[in-house]
Design a protein around this nucleic acid. Sequence first.
DNA 1: ATAGGGTTAG
Length: 808
Amino acid sequence: MRAGTFPFSLNAIQTSDVGEIAGSYAAYLQLFASLNSCLRYSLLLRGLRALHAHILASGFKPRKHILNRLIDLYSKYGDILSARRLFDSTPQPDVVARTCLINAYSNAGDIGLARQMFDETPIFYRDTVFYNAMISGYSRSGEGLPGVFVFRRMLRDGVPPDEYTFSGVLSAAAYLINLNLVLCQQLHCAAAKAGTGYSVTVLNALIALYCKCQSFVAASHAQKVFDEMLVRDELTWTTMVVGYVRRGDISAARQVFDVMEERFDVVWNAMISGYVHCEQFFEAFEIFRRMQSLQLPLDEFTYTSVLSACANAGLFWHGKAVHAKIIRHGPDFDPKSALPVKNVLVTLYSRCHKLELARRIFDGIQMKDTVSWNAMLSGYVNSGCICDAREVFEQMPRNSQLPWMVMISGLVQNGFSEEALKLFNRMRGENVKPCDYTYAGIFSACGDLGALQHGRQLHGKHIQLGYESSNSAGNALITMYAKCGALADAHLVFLEMPNVDSVSWNSIIAAFGHHGHGDEAIELYERMINEGIYPDKLTFLTILTACNHAGLVDEGLQYFRSMEQDYGISPGEDHYARLIDILGRAGRIEEAENVIRSMPFEAGSSIWESVLAGCRIRGNMDLAVYAADKLFKMIPQYHGTYVLLSNIYASFGRWEDVARVRKLMRDRGVKKEPGCSWIEVENMVHVFLVNDTTHPGLRQVFSFLEVLGAKMRKLGYVPDTRFVLQDVKSERKEYVLSTHSEKLAVVFGLLNMPVEATIRVLKNLRICGDCHNAILFMSMATEREIIVRDGKRFHHFKDGECSCGNFW
DNA sequence: ATAGGGTTAG
């Protein structure tokens, strides 16, 4: 029967012979049952309804097997209401009808109603097929534990399992959260004992289960089962490929894939997602292209995987093209299968910073699941839209720890460390168990806030929970202790970590570097190389920063060269900027200019900012103006350029130019940072001072600076730059403090010295090396409040603790 | 009346 002939005519049934009528109906229903994949279900449903109406109109009393078949077909075609109505009108529905409804409910995703039907069925009714339907219902819904429980109950009730049972329970068990090898082996034995140990279906499911165990032993069991199989089908091979992919052994998967004679669509999809997981996006795309050229059917899994490749590689236009393809040529997915595609689209667009697009997709999802919410949340978080992220976070279901983790680490990354700690407390109040990454987030929050005591306590808690072997939290701990000035503790954490990775090395090198121990940083770097860990871009950035802070100019140059020569890592703009910074600070401006000329790409804003900062130290006015011009063109709204340039003019005493730059800034509507002026501290910490001199906090800072200045003079340090007191009255009758105000001169001069010297002074003041931390100790030593700004963060130091108080 | 494989957020 072809699609065009439906719905068919029922005129053929004209006889009044009851037996013949029943036979005709049964034959028609048989026909429907055999038409599973030939036609769209909506068309079939229309035909079925017509047939059903005909049966009702004929006054014929259908027997139970006909009714059951009707119920089954209604269920299959998704018309659960009709199936249920028919079921309810059936006198004493038997186990077959009940099984049909269990399937109908579980296929519709309502496993609760399926279970209700299961529970309502008396035990003496139940047979093997009935249990099988419930078990496979659970496995299709991804609910492992109840599936396994139903299986156990089946054995207890004395109903014999068959190969369907084991196929179902094995695939249900794959969803168990605490799946382990022992359970796999138990099920394996049970299947063998029940005499189903040679069924291809069962063994395929068993291989898949072993592969999901994620251990080498389990993987070898999977291999053994595979090797001992007498008959294998395409699915066996497919399962093996999927197993290799899951283990991350993409090349083994590819080998099998290439020799497979007949490939299921699934195996293509598995290869795409495998390549995505190994971050080989080009290969993933290659598979997708081959699928297209072979005109293989592309389903929602294909699209999800390939879009995920686009999202991870940041390929906006590729992703958009695939999206367009889905809209134009794609099959119309039912809402359930369309959901993952829409979810990954949200991720794709938010990763490409098209948040409005992402939001539009997100708003268009009727049945949002946790993945949708989390995708939108992390989209906002990663783009720094904390306000929107907060809103989403409050609206969404928060029963898993994931949104908490995303929100907490998002807050930390965007400079809301104190709020992150508050959220962490709220999380614990709501009895959500924090995961390891959450701890990583709050450790870095503590580091940002300089909250050493709090950090230590949480570290203790973390050890209690048995997380100490993890790397993400360990690496965060290194940085936390380093930022809090506890370099020894940072080192200890590093030494005690069972398996350090390149991030750990980078963190500990940065820790020593930031504390001014350039030599130790370099030594650690050499040890890392000796231990066979490959340095990455970040390592070099760290080591260059360390050289910069320690004033190790030639070493910096050497490592910069080594980067490309020895490791084939081409330096990025940030590496060049760091190098120029090093040269600039050493006053080697000509060399810095040469570096800019030799760069393989146009100098970007970070380069020119380094140049400008370099000029401030050994006043090269012409170059400063040149660099500032570049910056004005590239990022005209960036306030830093104006401030730096006017500072340089000020150090030459060219006050008209200072005024001109300030006017330029006003005319262009460049927003100054709210209510503060600033000085730069070794390129790391920016100290901002409130304009409003009546602010109590500012008076504190003034007196602190006086104390510091006095101590400095005592130690024999004389500020080496010209400082002039300049009080400019603005329209708002506030004081604008130039960075050259005499009271700031001390810090300014102090921080213009090489780091080694700074550290020495700070050490004499019983202050540790990290500038951020230095301020903390300064505030303790002088018993004053100090306000500091680090990047986007405002910190308020008082009584040896630091917080992000609403100071302004 | 029932079965085995693949997808998305971090």
